[in-house]
Amino acid sequence: MAQMTMAKALNEGLRRAMENNPKVLLMGEDIGKLGGVFRVTDGLQKDFGEDRVIDSPLAESGIVGTAVGMAIRGYRPVCEIQFDGFVYPAFDQIVSQVAKLHSRSDGVYTMGLVIRLPYGGQIGAIEHHSESPEGYFAHTAGLRVVSPTTPNDAYWMIQQAISHDDPIIFCEPKCRYWEKGDVDLDHPPRGLFEANVAREGRDVTVVTYGPSVRTALRAADAAAAEGRSVEVIDARSIAPLDFGVMVTSVQKTGRLVVVAEAPANASVSAEIAARLAEDCFYSLSAPPLRVTGYHTPYPPSRIEEEYLPSVDRILDAIDRVIGFES
């Protein structure tokens, strides 16, 4: 066991992956000498050299497009997109090439690349630095999307993602980077695509992921003080979603609230609610509710708290699913 921040855990995970496989290389803007704007790659260029930790030109499509070629050549590139809001120039390469080349080549090409994406709000940032674009990628066949929320998950999930043969969009909740936690350096907690029951409860299931997990856990604390037992599930994998864990929970509680920062319309939260309504129809004592960011561009930081799913908004949803007449 070691105590470290999530940023450091990612750094250690990347280091271990690079030590284990010489084909792993990192690419991104300012990831070398600077160590990345979040210091996730701090010191790696010094230890692994400029050929493996590549300070790239300022071109996101270039980062991903060249990573595709490197993957075809047999490398395992790990791309860093500096901020969520800058991934869009690379969107074409991600959905047109990354997601499809394994299929178009009849499986000859292995698109074993990872695209690291610091995402989400709660950090008081300026425009284009607080977005939640995970839904675009979760929607795209051929891609997988995961999001760690603890240092331990971060340390292991980045390694599991790098060794996986499918392309993975690795969404890192920026608001969690500096939170410390225990990291078990010997044993991974669970598979990359498995959900985790972050808190057990009886009355309501709250499914969430990424930056909203902590908010949901705090809401569960508040609900407990009001005599309500809330189960919180950290999805961890956004695509595919681990519905087994979620179904078991909803069949127990009969009530579902989904929490995410991204707006609800045609989103990951929509998929979770729809699928659990399908799979748990006879268990649901109330319609599933969602607590998400509003359907607006991400607001200026001084009012982001009013936009984001908050403890109060989650408690309100819990009230409504429990109070639903049945």
Partner: peptide, 16 residues
């Protein structure tokens, strides 16, 4: 799209 893919492939060749 393929122009970038080719450059990446060439960078892999370079590293090999």
């Amino acid at each position: 799209n393929q122009a970038l893919n080719a450059v990446g492939y060439a960078m892999g060749v370079q590293r090999d």
